[in-house]
Design a protein around this nucleic acid. Structure first.
Lengths: 162, 162
DNA sequence: TCATGTTATGTTATATTATAACATTGGAGG
DNA sequence: CCTCCAATGTTATAATATAACATAACATGA
C-alpha cells in the first residue's frame, strides 16, 4: 500500500476502519473504567455509531440509527449519550456543522483543531502547538483567559482535490 | 479616560458605541454603493440591530426587535438580511453561538478570529497573521485547501476577570 | 411612460437541532 | 434485600433555519 505525507492527517479510503473503531471503543472502555465512569451499552453504541467514519455525524442521524437497531430512542437519548462522551473527551463537537466526531487522542484533554473537507466531510484532527501558541499569544495580549478554543478549518482535502 | 493595552481588543464599557454603529452603517453604505449591492432599509435596519453591541446577536432576537419596531417580519425576513450582510462581509457568523456580530473591518474579505467572553458576551475580532499562518502551515502539510477557517476562542475577558 | 424582467420582501408551512420536565428502571453499596 | 443515585424512557416544547410560492418594488430599455 502506498503512503504519502498527507496520510498522517486524513485516512486513506482503504485504511482498516473497523480497527479504528474497535480500538477507539476499547480505549474508551479502559479510560472510563479508570475514571469510574460508566460506559453503558447505550453510550458504547452511540460511540460506535459516531465512529462509523472519520467524519462528523448528526445527532438525529444517530437517533435514526439507534431506532433502526431496535432501540427505543428519543432525542434526549442521543443528546445525553453525546453529553457523556463529550465530558469524557471521547468525542468532539464540530460547531460549524452541529455534528460530532470521535476523538483520536482521548487520553489527554484537549479542544482539538479540525480540518474538515466540504466534499467528503472527512475530518483530520490536529493538536498543533503553533496554532495553540499563536492563539494563546493573542489571548494574553488581550488579557483574555481562554476556556474553550474552537478551530474548525473547512475546505477541500487532498483526495477530493485530485 | 484611562486606557490600557487591552483596549485595542475589547472596547471599554464607556466607549462611544453610538459612533461605532454609525460608522459601521456608513461604511456599509459606501461599500455597497461601490459594489452595486443594495443596502435596503430592511438590511440597514438589521445591520444596525446587529451593531447594538460588540457582541453576537441571535437571529430570533433580531426578529423580535424588528417586530417591536412595527415591521412585518418572519424568520426569512431576518435570515435573508443576514445572508446578504454575510455575503457582503459586513457581519460574521459566530458558529459556536449561532449568532451574528458586526465586522470591524469590512473593506477586505477575511474570516476573522474571535475572542468571546462567556460572561459579558463581548467579542474582540482579530485577524492575526500568526494564527493564520500556523493554520495555513498545517493545511499545507495535509494537502488541504482552506476555504473557510473558523476560529472562535471562548473564555473570560479582562474586564469580567477583574 | 410603461412594459418587462429581476431582485427583494411577504407569507405560510415545515425542517432541523436541542432541551425541559417528570416518570421509570436498574445498578452499586450499605 | 433496601435504598439511593445514576441512567434511561417519555412527552412536550423551545430554538434555529429553510422551502416554496406570492407579491411588491425597482431598474432599465423600448
Amino acid at each position: 500500500m502506498q503512503t504519502s505525507a498527507h496520510d498522517q492527517y486524513f485516512r486513506s479510503d482503504d485504511h482498516n476502519h473497523a480497527r479504528c473503531r474497535r480500538e477507539a471503543v476499547a480505549t474508551a472502555a479502559t479510560l472510563c473504567a479508570q475514571r469510574g465512569a460508566r460506559l453503558t451499552p447505550l453510550r458504547r453504541q452511540v460511540l460506535e455509531l459516531v465512529w462509523a467514519r472519520h467524519a462528523p455525524v448528526l445527532a438525529y442521524d444517530l437517533l435514526d440509527q439507534l431506532r433502526a437497531r431496535q432501540r427505543r430512542a428519543a432525542p434526549p437519548t442521543v443528546y445525553r449519550a453525546l453529553d457523556f462522551l463529550l465530558e469524557q473527551g471521547l468525542i468532539h463537537r464540530i460547531e460549524s456543522m452541529n455534528a460530532y466526531v470521535g476523538c483520536v487522542d482521548p487520553f489527554v484533554e484537549h479542544a482539538g483543531q479540525f480540518l474538515i473537507c466540504n466534499r467528503c466531510r472527512s475530518v483530520a484532527e490536529l493538536d498543533d502547538a503553533e496554532i495553540g501558541e499563536a492563539v494563546k499569544a493573542q489571548a494574553t495580549a488581550a488579557g483574555f483567559q481562554v476556556m474553550r478554543p474552537t478551530v474548525e478549518i473547512r475546505g477541500i482535502c487532498s483526495a477530493c482535490a485530485r
